[in-house]
Design a protein around this nucleic acid. Structure first.
Lengths: 339, 339
DNA sequence: CTCCTCGATGAAAACCTTTGAGTCGCAGGT
DNA sequence: ACCTGCGACTCAAAGGTTTTCATCGAGGAG
């Protein structure tokens, strides 16, 4: 080992007075190694500041120690949604915790899709976490064909056979929200939904419908699509005020939209919660705690969701036979002042 | 090559009727190869769907083909700032374009710092893009000692010797904003600054001061720190209204704070821009286009900044002697309705 | 005392690519 | 006829780790 080069396993072994093989066993926590050897190797590692060469290890184990985190969104603008930042942060943390490299991939265009395909097929990562909520997202079909362990966030559109996913209980949360509004004595409850090409939006709508005892026809009269954007929430709320002038409560399928809806209500001279009670969804603190009034919302714990996704993927990578392929995380109602 | 295994360079060479070495040279665009060989190899690559094994390549070239993107923020909450999402997106895109893996690292705690240190020192990446705007951020001193090519976003605190960075012209932008307000005939112009432990905030403050011809004392009377948060902007604006009741214009050092300031102004019954003209900074469309009224703002093109950072880092990696170590990107004023 | 067993260890193959050194054939100069 | 130079190519080493297989020694059973 020259002065400047990084120490290799060979150096460690030499210093510890054992062979490369034994040193390797120590590093990989093999049980077949004597206490003395273990101690000696550990000391050498520490003294030399040894760090295994990832490339060499990857070459022989056929494992890269990296996983891809893929966000597929036809509309780049959606990334202004703070939800996205929260998921990325959670991913970075959870993967760092298990000492795995996170390779972030954002796919917007067909070009991006092709690139993602090449990359994922190229064996550059051991597995992937995929966020692809939209209907008929081709990326999902592409990924499905790959011999690569994948865990999805939420239900991707299409058949779920053989897929692994961690979802939030969107429907249950929607029921919670709606029941809460009912329990406040509200009679005319309406709903601002997300875009109906995302299953999470559909599930929330379904929860609303079932809690209200509505069929499709009935629901259509008291529901507007807000597209999961602030501006959309604003407009949807305005449309609902026109459609149902006597409304006294609204369940909004995301906090961002709820912020927009609150603005519309304020402009229309409605007091919240006295005239109209409002419940959001996400419990995104940066939004919910700073609206006026602070927003009652259904909490879905994204950190938890991502953590579960990572755990699940790690099990797949360790080739453990995974008992449960689909997990649904509970949602809870967080009361603030808007309802 | 078995049925299921991925093809190796050996397979490609065999199919093309050449040696591994020649095949390799084709892949690496070496000039020393005949047209026929080139053609044959390319055909074989295509036919076999060959993809080079990154690990093997990394092992011999001592290059990983990955770079780290590091965000150092003592306060995780700051990541709710949409600016962060924009930077990440830009990084993902720019790095994908040059076919380099992006390894995202978020460092909040000293623990994270230690981990980042280990990782960056471990030779797992070829270089790093570092976002560490805060004063006395220890991560910067850590990174500085590493024999690793690094490009910073903006000026990190401390000596800049030997460092590579791409900054926005914060001071110039601030001058632009202030001059614009002056040209509108405004007489009492105040400033909501960012947190003064970030040089970008200080530069913007300096621009304001110089355009106004103020010294430190004079500036203190018409300036408030809004901490680069919406809520902070709200409060700072309120404080300024109390301090300078006759104010007729405000330059706010970020769009997020400006959104908060607008709310305060509205609550105080001030019309924008008639009573008070407002200019923001960032030109973050998701904010600036959706405030009421739409926000006049100084544009700093983050996409461009990140693109330059990547380009610069690539030059460093190719070991080109880089002429310019510090780049400053221009800022421009985007007029909307608030001023 | 010999034979086995078993746990710890070492030697060496394997993983796949890049690259410097060496080979080969051929044209052109002497 | 012989060397030289050159372009196109092949050979084989090197890069650092994991893992299989063989070896070695100690201790227990017979």
């Amino acid at each position: 080992m020259s002065i400047h080069a990084r120490p290799t396993l060979e150096d460690v072994a030499a210093r510890a007075g054992v062979s490369r093989a034994t040193a390797s066993r120590v590093l990989n926590a093999s049980p077949r190694v004597s206490p003395e050897a273990l101690e000696a190797v550990n000391a050498a590692v520490l003294a030399l500041g040894y760090q295994p060469n990832r490339a060499a290890r990857a070459l022989v184990t056929r494992r890269t120690g990296a996983v891809a985190v893929v966000f597929s969104e036809p509309e780049p603008k959606i990334f202004d949604d703070p939800h996205f930042a929260r998921l990325i942060r959670a991913g970075a943390r959870a993967l760092a915790d298990v000492d795995v490299q996170m390779v972030l991939m954002l796919v917007h265009s067909p070009d991006d899709q092709a690139r993602a395909h090449r990359f994922l097929a190229g064996g550059h990562v051991d597995g992937a976490l995929v966020f692809a909520p939209h209907r008929n997202d081709e990326l999902v079909s592409i990924v499905k064909k790959l011999p690569l362990p994948v865990v999805y966030a939420g239900k991707p559109w299409g058949s779920l056979r053989g897929m692994h996913l961690v979802d939030n209980d969107n429907e249950g949360g929607a029921v919670l929200a709606t029941e809460h509004l009912k329990s406040l004595g509200r009679k005319k409850i309406v709903h601002v939904s997300g875009p109906l090409d995302e299953l999470s939006a559909i599930d929330r709508l379904n929860g609303f419908k079932s809690a209200m005892g509505l069929d499709d026809k009935g629901a259509a009269k008291v529901t507007e699509d807000g597209g999961f954007t602030r501006e959309g929430g604003r407009k949807a709320m305005a449309a609902l005020l026109a459609k149902v002038p006597t409304l006294d409560a609204v369940f909004v399928a995301s906090d961002l939209m709820a912020a927009g809806a609150l603005e519309t209500l304020q402009e229309a001279g409605k007091r919240v919660p006295q005239d109209v009670a409002v419940v959001g969804f996400d419990d995104h603190v940066a939004i919910a705690e700073h609206t006026t009034p602070p927003l009652t919302s259904v909490r879905q714990d994204s950190d938890e969701q991502v953590k579960h996704m990572v755990e699940h993927l790690m099990k797949l990578l360790r080739d453990e036979t995974v008992k449960t392929k689909k997990q649904v995380l509970p949602t809870v109602l967080v009361r603030r002042e808007s309802a």
